Amino acid sequence: MSLVEVVTNAMVGFVTSVPVNFAILPLFGAPVKLGASMGITLAFTVVSVVRSYLVRRFFAIHIKRFAHWCQDFHDGMRSLGSMT
């Protein structure tokens, strides 16, 4: 589901970004045609999808490990408290 969410978000971003690039880039001295604007946006969209997916997977994997560590730490502290 992470990939579905990331791709959906990227598609919405792509549809939004093409006209924005087409309008904004000429203001910075980079006049572009619609096809070029779509190409630029597509390149950034692909990078965004890969980046977002990898970040989500990283957190999905490591948050479980961190949660287990926290639980073990909590259990250890509770057992120390019951010794007194």
Rank of each mutant, 00 (worst) to 15 (best):
M77H: 00
L25M: 11
A30L: 02
I61P: 01
D72Q: 10
L80F: 12
F22N: 06
L80P: 01
K33V: 11
R56C: 10
F28Q: 06
A36H: 03
R56Q: 13
L42R: 00
D75E: 15
H74T: 06
Y53R: 03
A36T: 09
M83E: 11
G35S: 13
F73P: 02
T41V: 03
A30S: 00
N9D: 08
L42V: 03
F58C: 03
S48F: 05
C70H: 09
L54Q: 09
L42I: 07
M11D: 04
R57L: 15
N9P: 03
V32W: 05
T84C: 01
M1Y: 09
N21A: 07
S48T: 06
G35E: 03
V6R: 00
M1I: 10
N21Y: 09
G29W: 04
M38V: 14
F66Y: 15
M11W: 13
R65G: 14
G39C: 05
C70F: 07
F28I: 01
S52D: 07
V4I: 15
G29V: 07
R57W: 15
G76E: 12
L27Y: 06
G76L: 09
F73D: 08
G39M: 03
V7L: 07
K64W: 00
H68M: 11
F22T: 02
P31N: 05
Y53H: 06
P31T: 02
V12M: 08
R51P: 06
V55S: 12
H74D: 08
V46L: 09
P19T: 09
H62Y: 11
S52P: 00
I40Y: 02
M38I: 09
F44I: 00
H74F: 05
I61G: 01
V12S: 10
F66E: 14
F28E: 04
P31H: 03
S79V: 07
F73G: 00
L34K: 12
R78L: 14
M1F: 13
L80S: 08
I24S: 10
V49H: 01
V49N: 02
V32F: 09
V50G: 03
A60W: 04
N21L: 12
I40Q: 07
G81T: 13
